[in-house]
């Protein structure tokens, strides 16, 4: 599974990256969370609000900062 956090480098995006790492750790997954600040990548995904949590290259959560539980739930759907 590929997990990415995409953002323009704003505080909210960084926070989502931190929370996602925490969620992955708590779920005991071996996946590395990738943090992408390249705007082109975000737009190429067809999303227009950041931050974005993308799983397997597709946006799963975008535009707001969820809590860890929500991130875990979202990731679990792809396991």
């Amino acid at each position: 599974m590929q997990i990415q956090v995409l953002g323009s480098g704003c505080p909210t995006c960084k926070k989502l990256f931190e929370l996602t790492k925490q969620a992955v750790e708590e779920l005991g997954l071996k996946t590395e969370v990738e943090y992408i600040t390249d705007i082109q990548k975000i737009v190429e995904m067809g999303v227009m609000s950041s931050p974005v949590l993308a799983i397997n290259g597709k946006p799963a959560i975008s535009g707001f900062l969820p809590d860890v539980e929500k991130i875990k739930e979202t990731i679990k759907k792809f396991i």
Binding site: G7, T12, Q40, I42, V43, V47, M48, S49, P51, G63
Partner: peptide, 17 residues
């Protein structure tokens, strides 16, 4: 729409594109 300044770039590009 809710708006966070972090979104202004993807929004701008998304609209123009």
């Amino acid at each position: 729409t809710p708006f966070c300044s972090c979104s202004s770039i993807p929004l701008f590009i998304g609209f123009i594109e």
